[in-house]
């Protein structure tokens, strides 16, 4: 009687990947609020705590997925590819958490121009993560369609949008970089180094999202 519970274990592959991506998006949604509070020298403890909790939740999903897959399970995906994929997807939320904690280290009076550039960067990274999350959510549809070429092509088309957004993020990062070097005489070098580090960490979120998106076609193959 119990043969079916054993035969079809409650092992899910797509659902935890989607849930993990949704948590990433949820954490990323906190960024505009976090940066506004930071620029206004307000207390960011609560927001950072929320992001940390989301990171822990995502970590648990990653670990559960990795441990649930063993060689005895016949799945539509290569186990090693899934493990590598979720490991990379988890890097996104790690970077989100790193950024939020980075803001604890330093704060200084910034000109409006810089604040606007940083907010623009945050918004574009948020857009990239949004598109990434949409793409991950489409995995379920691809699976239901039995990996139809039409759905896979639609996924690729959507994913190309992340590449466009990542280019935009690079542009803004470069702009911030130029601002930093053109103001080297006016600000404390430590503040400028901190600023450079902050801008690079935020833009890395979009970079990693792009890398993860590039991995999606490989997990669809078997």
């Amino acid at each position: 009687m119990a043969i079916f519970k054993k035969l079809l274990p409650n092992v899910k592959v797509i659902e935890p990947i989607i849930k993990h991506a949704q948590i990433i998006e949820k954490a990323m949604m906190k960024f505009p609020e976090l940066f506004r509070a930071y620029f206004g020298f307000k207390n960011i403890d609560e927001i950072v705590k929320e992001i940390t909790n989301l990171e822990r939740e995502a970590d648990k999903i990653k670990e559960r997925l990795k441990s649930s897959l063993d060689n005895y399970h016949l799945t539509p995906f290569e186990r090693s590819t899934i493990v590598l994929y979720i490991h990379n997807q988890d890097k996104i939320i790690d970077l989100i958490e790193d950024t939020s904690k980075l803001l604890y280290l330093n704060n200084f009076e910034m000109p409006e121009e810089l604040k606007n550039m940083l907010m623009e960067l945050v918004e574009e990274v948020k857009n990239a993560v949004d598109v990434f999350e949409d793409g991950v959510r489409r995995l379920e549809r691809i699976f239901i369609s039995d990996f139809s070429t039409r759905e896979i092509e639609a996924e690729k088309f959507e994913m190309e949008k992340v590449e466009g957004l990542e280019d935009k993020v690079d542009e803004i990062t470069l702009k911030i970089g130029r601002w930093i070097y053109s103001n080297k005489e006016n600000y404390n070098p430590i503040d400028l180094m901190f600023l450079r580090n902050l801008a690079l960490t935020v833009s890395e979120i979009a970079d990693v999202s792009q890398n993860v998106v590039d991995m999606i076609p490989s997990i669809l193959k078997k």
Binding site: L7, P9, H73, P76
Partner: peptide
């Protein structure tokens, strides 16, 4: 095998 189910436990074949 047709990639239609997310996970099938092959250990059951032992049963």
């Amino acid at each position: 095998l047709a990639r239609g189910v997310e996970a099938v436990n092959l250990k059951i074949l032992k049963n």
